[in-house]
């Protein structure tokens, strides 16, 4: 009997379902991940929240139209008084244009402080709406840059091994040896006079100390995958090292790093807000949630009366972090090999 005549009756494939067009287009693994994400209630909640934030960020000019000829990221202020005004108070001076939906919803011509004003008469509503852009921008940029640096260093370290690995990992240790928030604060404070007050200094400060976790995680995943049999098989076939790295190792090793990244976006946004809160982040009056919270500092003891100055930006911040964590958690569950059935 020759091999061609081999009977193949017992070789039915395990799944009969043909891949649908979406699966064919996305590829099996991405499809399964996406499917896992949209069927998990927690991740759906997270994604709805996230969608809401993205909508708010995108629709900011409609939700809170800025003053003409003014930087929209500067929170408009209604006078200079110290005492916060409660939600619903009418604008007295320098009123920004009415959003088009305001009249339709309330039937009034008068724009009010929807969430009240903070100390210094900064409008909280404008801060929350435009601050969403700041939070998304800061969180995503910091994480993206951190992941890029971390992936580069982790990959080089694991790929070359030996003294390259040694040097890179000791550098990583060095960066990890300092408490994250303290060094980020210090660096931000040092950079601010050089780069000017604004988003750049605190973001660079956070990026500089954010990549270490990604580098270490990816390096360890690559090291464990490098001895897998399919990687050995690729070497036996004669696949070159760089191709092995990019085709066989990285696609399998990158997912834990991506999960970590998705969970870090929220925490970097909150850390960034923390820097702003302490006055070494965004400049005063810049639409940023940490900034808004710092306006509440003088009234902390009277929150029974002035609850809104903490409540609105605080709850927004919590929800923002929560949404990323929910999505990250679900992503981790979906990608966890133990939850994937046999493979």
């Amino acid at each position: 009997m020759t091999a061609q005549e081999m009977p193949m009756p017992t070789l039915a494939p395990r799944t009969r379902r043909p891949p649908n067009w979406l699966e064919a287009w996305l590829g099996h693994d991405v499809y399964r991940t996406v499917k896992g994400l949209v069927t998990n209630p927690m991740s759906v909640a997270g994604m709805i929240l996230l969608g809401l934030f993205i909508f708010i960020a995108a629709a900011a000019p409609m939700l809170a139209p800025p003053l003409p000829n003014a930087d929209p990221y500067n929170i408009p202020r209604d006078g200079y008084g110290d005492v916060p005004k409660s939600p619903g108070t009418e604008w007295k001076s320098r009123q920004p244009p009415l959003p088009f939906w305001w009249k339709a919803v309330t039937g009034k011509d008068q724009w009010v402080h929807l969430m009240g004003t903070a100390s210094g008469q900064w409008d909280i509503y404008y801060g929350v709406i435009w601050g969403t852009r700041t939070a998304l921008f800061a969180g995503l940029t910091i994480t993206l840059c951190g992941v890029l640096i971390g992936v580069t260093i982790g990959t080089l370290s694991a790929f070359y091994g030996g003294w390259v690995d040694m040097v890179f990992m000791r550098i990583t240790d060095l960066f990890m040896a300092f408490p994250f928030l303290l060094t980020a604060m210090t660096l931000s404070a040092v950079l601010t006079p050089r780069l000017g007050k604004g988003l750049l200094a605190p973001m660079i400060a956070l990026i500089v100390f954010s990549w270490t976790g990604f580098a270490r995680l990816l390096r360890s995943d690559i090291l464990s995958l490098r001895e897998r049999e399919y990687v050995l098989a690729a070497r036996v076939i004669g696949v070159k090292d760089t191709r092995i790295m990019f085709r066989h190792i990285l696609p399998n090793a990158i997912f834990p790093t991506l999960v970590l990244a998705s969970m870090r976006i929220g925490s970097y946004a909150i850390t960034f807000a923390g820097l702003s809160f302490m006055g070494i982040g965004a400049e005063v009056g810049f639409a940023d949630w940490g900034q808004l919270l710092s306006f509440a500092r003088d009234w902390m003891t009277q929150l029974r009366e002035y609850w809104y100055i903490v409540m609105y930006p605080g709850v927004t911040l919590v929800l923002f972090v929560l949404s990323w964590n929910l999505v990250g958690d679900a992503l981790r569950d979906v990608l966890d090999p133990r939850m994937q059935g046999s493979r």
Partner: peptide, 24 residues
């Protein structure tokens, strides 16, 4: 050695670990 691999191949022990799960 890479050229020589064309005439020398290997089959691995664990069929669950010897195929890249992300490749068709």
């Amino acid at each position: 050695m890479r050229e020589m691999r064309r005439s020398m191949q290997m089959i691995f022990q664990d069929p669950y670990a010897s195929l890249n799960p992300r490749m068709s």
